[in-house]
């Protein structure tokens, strides 16, 4: 990512059928206590102006074509930020009939249609709290270290044999 892209990330809010909790937290991040604008983040009204798409929700079938259109309309380099449990892993609706189950399925569909996404970020949370969004912005800008990593733990048996 170029230096100036990191300094000025314009985001378009792409609700793909979320419950609103993440969406109002996104708005909340712009308000005085958190103030995402100090990182150069600005909410824009058209995907044509956007650098990053804040995706919330598990992608419902009804919203899918519109989501693809919005992603296609975003000029490259484009960043897709999956926000909240629904978006990252499908959440509580990960296998219902009218959703496709989150960003991973969406990326597969995008790949089929040869629409490229340059960077993908994942922010789990239900809902994502504003600090988590700030942390993610920090991660994109390189201000903070990534803290989470996959863990494999082995259960310890007490007795042998």
């Amino acid at each position: 990512m170029s230096k100036f892209l990191k300094k000025s990330i314009w985001v378009f809010h792409l609700n793909t059928g979320s419950c609103n909790a993440c969406d109002i937290e996104i708005l909340d991040v712009l308000t005085p206590y958190f103030d995402a604008e100090r990182f150069g983040v600005k909410l824009v009204a058209s995907p044509r102006h956007a650098d990053a798409l804040l995706m919330t929700g598990p992608v419902t079938l009804e919203a899918l074509p519109k989501v693809i259109n919005a992603i296609e309309a975003t000029p490259r380099p484009r960043i897709l930020i999956a926000m909240g449990s629904c978006s990252v892993g499908g959440g509580i609706w990960h296998d219902t009939y009218s959703t496709i189950g989150g960003v991973r399925e969406l990326l597969k569909i995008l790949k089929e249609r040869e629409i490229e996404v340059d960077h993908v970020y994942y922010i789990p949370g239900c809902p994502i709290r504003p600090e988590a969004i700030i942390y993610a912005i920090g991660l994109i800008k390189g201000l903070v270290e990534k803290k989470i990593s996959s863990k494999v733990k082995k259960a310890v048996r007490r007795t042998s044999g």
């Binding site: 059928g17 419950c19 909790a21 969406d23 009804e62 919203a63 219902t96 009218s98 959703t99």
Partner: peptide, 27 residues
């Protein structure tokens, strides 16, 4: 935003789990 959890309960949600499902009707 029709996420249709219609038949979700058939396989997984129990009475107490539906509380959390209901909560996510609207954030």
């Amino acid at each position: 935003v029709h996420r249709g959890i219609e038949k979700l309960g058939e396989s997984r949600t129990t009475y107490q789990q539906v509380n959390f499902l209901a909560e996510r009707i609207c954030g």
